[in-house]
Every structure is written in structure tokens, then in C-alpha cells.
Design a protein around this nucleic acid. Structure first.
Length: 228
DNA sequence: CCAGACGTTGTT
DNA sequence: GTCTGG
DNA sequence: CCAGACGTTGTT
DNA sequence: GTCTGG
């Protein structure tokens, strides 16, 4: 699954260039992005063909939910079942998005303890998780825009670490994934592959990352295997 | 008909 | 909102 | 995802 | 054990 990630060396202009959305102003480097926080995403402008950058709260609240606490559970959606699940299917059909990142963490179980790993591209390029977004209105009429990240089978680099991994979209999948007129489930599902392991690298990191309040470059410092 | 769930990961 | 279970 | 709280009465 | 907060 994916429950923490980074978005660090990403000046707004570079992100706008790579992902083609109107520039967001306040991009500060992040080393420990956690559920419930505002995350940088890209979606289609409603009623137009252009992309827009938007901050979404991580943890999807279905539009029909009575209690927004539901969002604390729905941080991930399984790619294999997302088209049918009541909590996700409408968003899967109508509200797909990119969530921008340049690395993510997974915890490997070692007996009673867990070792965090940091996973990123070998060339350090930012990438896009496949996401869904939703809007929810409370009793006072305040609107919350929330999102969830899709997960899939692990690739060769992830298999020793964890049995799920986030869906990282191939750049040529951005357009169809974001296209609100595309509703063909099999075409959409085809986009949700495990990203090629050859382009990725993983290394153990300090347990400092465990604490979501610790948002610091030390989260991603490689740890030698023997001291892991 | 109404009531209650609606999710993932991981654990057993 | 929509489906399942009673 | 992990960390940390999980309670009341009464005081400041 | 389970829920909330980050």
C-alpha cells in the first residue's frame, strides 16, 4: 500500500512543465507526507480540456458519507476492485487525478518490528500516482475535496518489501487517466500497471520517518543494510 | 419494507 | 447513493 | 502509514 | 483493541 511519500526537489515551474497544469504557488519541499494532509494533485478543469493543479486532502470521503471520519480509512483503493466498490466507483468513473510525488515509503515486516524503505526513480524524476478525488459537503455547506491513491501488485523491487505498491502512471497514461469522457473500465484498468522495477531503486531508511511530524531530509537518508 | 454497510492492510 | 441482509 | 490516546472533576 | 491525528 502507500501511506507516506515525498515531494521535495520540485520547483513549481518544473512541475507545471512536466505535468502541464497551471502553476501552484506554495510548493515547499516535503519529506514525510501523511494521510489527512493536503497533497499536490492535477485534474482536468471542469468543462474544459486544460489541467489544473489543486490541493486535495488525502483520505477520500464518499459524497454520500454522513461522517467525514470515513476519509481516514480510505487512503488507498485497490486497482483490481476500484470500478465496483461503492465508495470509489463514481469517482473512478468521473473524478480521476494525478498525485505528484518523487518517492514513497513502505514498511517491511521483520518479525515483531518494521523497517521503513524509501523507494524512488533512479533518475530522481518526479512522477504521478494514480488517484481519485471526491467532494463532500458538510451540514453547513462547506465543501471538502479529498483523494485516495490506487494500489496494485508489487513489481520485482517491491516484492521483498511489501505485497502491494502504489500505481505510478506511465507519462503516456496521464491523458487517458485524466480524460473525464473515458469510461471504458478495461481501458482504464490497463493503465494501472505496476511501474517497471528497472527504473526504480529502494533502500532502507531511519525509523525517524515513522513519526509523521518528522518532516525532514533525514527521512530519506540511505541506511546501510546491516544497521537497518 | 427498513437497517446498515460502504475500505485497505495485515493478522489469525 | 446503492446494495445486501433480515 | 505510524504514534498516541483512550477519562472525569475541577482548576487556571 | 480501536480510533484519531499527523
Amino acid at each position: 500500500m502507500c501511506g507516506r511519500y515525498t515531494l521535495k526537489t520540485t520547483p513549481a515551474a518544473v512541475m507545471a512543465d512536466q505535468f502541464h497544469f497551471e502553476e501552484l504557488s506554495d510548493l515547499t519541499p516535503r519529506y514525510n507526507i501523511a494521510p489527512s494532509q493536503a497533497v499536490v494533485s492535477v485534474r482536468m478543469n471542469s468543462g474544459s480540456t486544460s489541467r489544473e493543479g489543486v490541493m486535495l486532502k488525502w483520505g477520500l470521503i464518499p459524497f454520500w458519507a454522513k461522517d467525514p471520519a470515513m476519509g481516514m480509512k480510505l487512503i488507498n483503493a485497490r486497482a483490481e476492485t476500484v470500478a465496483e466498490k461503492p465508495s470509489f466507483r463514481k469517482a473512478f468513473r468521473q473524478r480521476r487525478c494525478l498525485v505528484l510525488a518523487d518517492g514513497f515509503y513502505e514498511w517491511q515486516k521483520e518479525g515483531q518490528t518494521k523497517q521503513p524503505y524509501y523507494i524512488r526513480m533512479k533518475d530522481e524524476r518526479p512522477f504521478a500516482f494514480a488517484g481519485l478525488w471526491e467532494h463532500w459537503t458538510d451540514a453547513e455547506g462547506n465543501v471538502l475535496e479529498t483523494c485516495a491513491l490506487l494500489t496494485t501488485e508489487p513489481n520485482e523491487i517491491m516484492t521483498p518489501i511489501h505485497h502491494r505498491m502504489p500505481v505510478i502512471l506511465n507519462p503516456n497514461a496521464y491523458d487517458p487517466w485524466l480524460d473525464p469522457t473515458l469510461h471504458d473500465v478495461s481501458r482504464l484498468t490497463t493503465l494501472l500497471q505496476s511501474y517497471p522495477a528497472e527504473e526504480m531503486m529502494a533502500n532502507p531508511v531511519s525509523r525517524l520517518v515513522n513519526n509523521a511530524r518528522f518532516d525532514d531530509p533525514r527521512c530519506i537518508e540511505p541506511l546501510a543494510e546491516q544497521e537497518a
